[in-house]
Each structure stands twice: as C-alpha cells, then as structure tokens.
Amino acid sequence: MTDVLRYTAFSDDPAGGNPAGVVLDATGLDEAGMLRIAAELGYSETAFLTDPPEGLGGEPGRAFTVRYFSPKAEVPFCGHATVATAVALGERIGPGELVFATRAGTVPVSVTADGQGGLRAVLTSVEPHVEDVDPADLAEALAALDWPQADLDPAIPPRIAYAGARHLVLGAATRARLADLAYDFPRLEALMRRLDLTTVQLVHRAGPALFDVRDPFPVGGVVEDPATGAAAAAFGAYARELGLAPADAVLTLRQGEDMGRPGVLTVELRAGDSRVRVGGGGVRIG
C-alpha cells in the first residue's frame, strides 16, 4: 500500500497555506497510479519521489526525482508541493540541501530550522523568462474572469511569466477587485490549455514589497490554488524585468486569505543571478 503523506506549505498552521500530497517512495507506481492517487486525494498537487537520475549531483540520499500530479494531469513543476516535500524530508533526514530532478529542470532546495521547532524550505527556480501576451488572448482572459479592462492596474502590465511553469500575470487595480473572483471555469480552462498556462496569477500591490495574490487553477481541476510557489517564482522574475522590484529584493506574497487558508510566500531576487528563490514554512496535516 502506498504511503501518502499530507502537508501544507507556506504556513505553520495545518489549516492555512496550500495542502499537498507527498509520496516519499513512488517506486512501482506508473503514471496512471500517480494520477489516481492525486485524484483521490483531491489536493491541487501531489508529489511523487523516486531515485534520482544518474549524474544529478547532491549529497547521497538527498537527491530525488520528483513528479507532480494535479487531480486531472501531470504538471512540470509545483512550488508548494516542493516545499511540502522538502519539509517532509527534513523531518526524516534532517535539515540541509536537497536536489530535485523535475520535468522543468533541476531544482535545489534548502531546508533549515525556523527557530520555533518547525522547518522552512527555500527552492531555487529554473531559469525564468517573461513574454508578451497577445491582445486577443488577454481579451479572452478578461472576458472569462468577467474583469473590465478598467479594473487592471496599469503599473502591473499583463505578461506571461515562467519559472518552471507558465502563468499569466494580471494586476488588479483594487483589493476589492482581487477579492471578487467568480469566473467562467470552462472558458478560462480552454484558454489556459491553449496557451499552456498552469495558473493565472492575479496580483494587487499592497506596498512597495508586499503583494496580495490569487491563482485560478481550472486546468488542475480546482477553482483556485491557495498558495502557489511556481507562480510566485514566475512573478519574481516578472517583477524584476518590469521594474516592480530592484535586482536585490525580498518580496512578500500573501495568498489564500480570500479562501480562508492564509499563507505567506517569500520571494528573493539576487543581483547577478536570474533564478528566483521562493521560501516558506510547512507542517504536516493530521
């Protein structure tokens, strides 16, 4: 019988953050088996670990192949499930450096004690990039969300950002606009599948380095993701390229409050390193 662990990421409260399934030994499971477990669990993603590929690097016993499945499909990378997995491993083999081989590339993760009896994990993204959005695709996204063009924040222009998975970044002019999320699920899902998007990253700037975010996730079979590490990494790259943050910066993203599952994601940018670091706490559920 496969042992499926349940952890939440980006919170030290089991009722907060984003829950993920973690299977520390997925040896013998094929894709159908992984998808079945992810669907039965019902979380936005479940991570499945097997032995690392040859030449991955990392300390012996601290390198793994990781695959991520939503209830509907495999995804190339998932930030919150990475953090949840790293915390689960840290509890068993101790804090330190981990290396994950994912479909998106190699992802190093550092696990440290948080000083309060818990653990914190920081992942380093693959090489990110940002691209323009076709005006027709933007119009379709806004129609699916039922957002008038006037509700967009011109200081946060629409872009598609990637740091392991693709996300459409849209800026909300007001916190009230961000809070009011009632979208056309099939219509947005169809657009996202055509553009190969994992989530739509809806953003409201609450301060110079503070953002409130929400992430519709219909392609994963859920209305909304409570705390999205991959989107946070992509947004970090976006914020740097668009001038919303300096080359050296630490951004705080609050997510999940509108769902009743508050979480906090820390996004770190470093001058001279294009990769983005995303960190947060994690704790076992039940």
Score class of each variant (00 low, 15 high):
residue 2 T to M: 04
residue 4 V to R: 04
residue 8 T to D: 05
residue 14 P to V: 05
residue 17 G to Y: 05
residue 18 N to L: 05
residue 28 G to Q: 08
residue 28 G to A: 01
residue 31 E to V: 11
residue 33 G to T: 11
residue 48 F to W: 09
residue 76 P to G: 07
residue 81 A to P: 12
residue 87 V to G: 09
residue 102 T to A: 13
residue 106 T to I: 14
residue 109 V to T: 05
residue 110 S to L: 10
residue 111 V to W: 03
residue 115 G to V: 05
residue 118 G to I: 02
residue 125 S to C: 07
residue 129 H to V: 01
residue 131 E to K: 00
residue 132 D to E: 15
residue 137 D to G: 00
residue 141 A to K: 00
residue 143 A to N: 08
residue 143 A to F: 00
residue 153 D to I: 08
residue 154 P to Y: 06
residue 155 A to W: 01
residue 156 I to W: 04
residue 160 I to K: 02
residue 162 Y to P: 00
residue 164 G to W: 01
residue 168 L to I: 08
residue 170 L to P: 03
residue 172 A to L: 03
residue 173 A to G: 07
residue 174 T to E: 14
residue 186 P to A: 04
residue 192 M to P: 04
residue 200 V to G: 04
residue 201 Q to E: 15
residue 202 L to R: 08
residue 203 V to L: 13
residue 211 F to G: 10
residue 212 D to N: 14
residue 213 V to G: 06
residue 214 R to A: 15
residue 223 V to T: 13
residue 224 E to A: 03
residue 225 D to L: 11
residue 232 A to E: 11
residue 238 Y to W: 12
residue 240 R to E: 13
residue 245 A to M: 12
residue 247 A to G: 03
residue 248 D to E: 15
residue 249 A to W: 11
residue 256 G to F: 09
residue 256 G to D: 12
residue 257 E to K: 01
residue 262 P to F: 14
residue 268 E to V: 15
residue 278 V to N: 09
